[in-house]
Simulated assay, not measured.
Amino acid sequence: MAESVHGGARLRVVSPPQPLLQVDNVSLEYRTAQRVVRATHRVSFDVHAADRFVLLGPSGCGKSTLLKAVAGFVPPAEGEIRLDGQRVRAPGPDRIVVFQEFDQLPPWQTVKQNVMFPLRQSARLSKPEAADRAMHYLDKVGLAAFADAYPHTLSGGMKQRVAIARALAMRPKVLLMDEPFAALDALTRRRMQEELLALWDEAGFTLLFVTHSIEEALVVGSRILLLSPHPGRVRAELNSHHFSLASQGSAEFQHAAQRIHQMLFEAPVEPPATHDRARAAGSH
């Protein structure tokens, strides 16, 4: 923030807030037996505090790989990822991932123990404090009555609620969700979307969410990044904060979904950036 004088009046210039998460020209690659394949090509975007930012694209466009790179599991081949201005180099408790798979909960631990486990492992809280926080978030997702149950007794939707409670209990700077509702039936998926948005309304956490469903992106996201088919390149970034679950039947919602589909699939596709580095590998 700076001050200047203009026409005798003192003006205060307010700088825009710094993004919480910055993905800057990030290319990601994976190696096969024959070659190195580029998953994303020079992708850039910013996520601000309390954003619901959605990565949307067809299967194979690298959106889940991007999420794993933000989590610190995959190093960029080029470019940089920064959280609070610091370069992401490894996984950390400031970024917690909720995966699509239902079996992400250790089956030998109760629901409450599953939520407490990362809190105790990170040495953030004492056992009583971890227990209190676990119950707080289990109550938020409507599972306080199942605290002593084991994962095998829960439905798929209930397991995902436990995973969300466990992630939120860590109070990460960014909650990362990799198609968390994709394997659920339509009714359960809608209910989970409702519950996620209600939790966001209450807690105001920052969300980075991956999906290949246009309708889900419009409902869950306040901003949507469109990625091209493989390799993932940025097609566009759209605001979607004015949509909600109640908007789905409206003409405006259907028009937006159709427009996104056209932008994803009918725009000219750039040639694949797949690199055969056999010669380079053989030169070492």
Score class of each variant (00 low, 15 high):
T188W: 03
E202I: 09
L197T: 07
L199A: 09
A182V: 04
G204L: 08
D201R: 15
L208F: 01
A186P: 02
D201W: 09
E194L: 13
W200L: 08
L199Y: 05
L199V: 10
R189W: 02
D185Q: 12
T206F: 02
L187F: 15
F205C: 12
R189I: 04
L197V: 12
A198F: 08
V210T: 02
T188S: 09
T211H: 02
L187I: 14
E195K: 07
P180N: 06
L208V: 07
L197Y: 05
V210Q: 00
H212D: 10
T211L: 05
M192H: 04
P180D: 04
E195D: 14
L199D: 04
L199P: 02
F205Y: 15
L184N: 03
E194M: 11
R191H: 13
H212E: 11
D201M: 11
T188Y: 01
R191C: 00
L208Y: 00
D185T: 11
R191S: 12
T188Q: 05
A203S: 13
R191I: 07
L199N: 03
A182K: 07
H212F: 10
R189C: 02
F205N: 10
L196H: 00
H212V: 11
G204R: 15
D201E: 15
R190H: 12
A183M: 04
L184E: 03
F181S: 01
L207R: 00
A203E: 15
M192V: 10
F205Q: 12
E202A: 13
Q193I: 09
L197F: 07
D201T: 12
L208Q: 01
M192P: 04
A198P: 06
L184S: 04
T188R: 04
L197G: 06
A182G: 07
L187S: 13
R191Y: 10
D201Q: 15
L208I: 02
E194Q: 13
S213H: 05
D185A: 11
L184D: 03
L187E: 14
H212G: 08
R190T: 13
W200P: 00
Q193F: 08
A182N: 03
S213N: 13
E202V: 11
E195I: 06
L207P: 00
L196W: 01
G204N: 13
T188A: 08
E202N: 12
A183Y: 00
L208C: 01
L207E: 01
L187Y: 13
E194I: 13
L196C: 05
A182P: 01
L199C: 11
T188F: 03
L208D: 00
L207G: 00
A203Q: 14
L207D: 01
P180T: 05
P180C: 05
T206C: 09
L197N: 04
H212A: 10
V210E: 02
Q193S: 10
A198Y: 09
Q193L: 12
E195H: 07
L187K: 14
S213W: 06
F209Y: 15
A186T: 11
R191Q: 14
R191F: 06
L184V: 08
W200A: 05
F181Q: 02
E202Q: 14
T188M: 12
E195R: 06
A198S: 15
W200Y: 11
